[in-house]
């Protein structure tokens, strides 16, 4: 069962621009993934974050494991690259952790939902997590220093972009679907909306 589901998920994810997946040693239970942050308002924009995923034979009844190849400076990422994120924990584990059952692993979860949760975790850190206390403190007290360290991580991650791999362009530059085009609409809104993007999304602390 696990092989069949994983093979389907693997094929589906191959179509996505925000993630690059390869199998390790042709083993469907071991994936090498790279998360590509396409959102230009993200602090992690332009990064190519390599990680390894291991799937249990009992997948999807048990969650996969996820580990960044280069640990990121982040309150929820351990020094070995593993993550503190509730979606990768079984609902029965460590009752005292304070994680809600509704955020835990369930067999209705998928690789895609896990990876999307991880991408949103990057910009939306849980500062009280014990994974990297120093990063949590820095995010609260020295947000500029924190941003600088993240930028370093992003630059370093670009070394992992495979030769010949074409990084997708940012999400916003994609041409909108043709049927949505309305000449009048574009002419009028052009001037008004100029310079109005990038609101408070990147605030810290």
């Amino acid at each position: 069962m696990a092989e069949r589901i994983l093979m389907n998920e693997y094929k589906e994810l191959q179509k996505e621009e925000w993630v690059h997946v390869e199998l390790k040693d042709d083993n469907i239970f071991r994936w090498e993934v790279a998360l590509i942050v396409l959102n230009p308002t993200s602090l992690y924009y332009g990064g190519y974050f390599k990680a390894e995923m291991r799937f249990p034979k009992r997948y999807p009844y048990e969650p996969p494991e996820f580990k960044f190849s280069r640990p990121l400076w982040h309150p929820n990422i351990y020094k070995d690259g593993k993550l503190c994120i509730s979606i990768l924990h079984q609902p029965g584990d460590d009752e005292m952790s304070g994680e809600l059952a509704s955020e835990r692993w369930s067999p209705a979860q998928r690789v895609e939902s896990v990876l999307l949760s991880i991408i949103s975790l990057l910009d939306d850190a849980e500062v009280s997590s014990p994974a990297n206390v120093d990063a949590g403190v820095m995010l609260r007290k020295q947000p500029d220093e924190y941003k600088r360290k993240v930028k370093e991580n992003v630059e370093t991650s670009k070394r992992d972009i495979p030769a010949g791999f074409k990084m997708p362009e940012k999400a916003e530059t994609k041409p909108p679907p043709k049927e949505d085009l309305d000449d009048d609409f574009w002419c009028e809104s052009d001037e008004e909306s100029f310079g109005e993007d990038s609101d408070g999304d990147m605030e810290f602390g």
Binding site: Y61, P91, S102, S106
Partner: peptide, 20 residues
Amino acid sequence: HCLLDWINTESSRGLCPMCR
């Protein structure tokens, strides 16, 4: 069969995988 495999694991605590 899919559901019983889940319900029979201890960590499921008898909850629906979709809405818990």
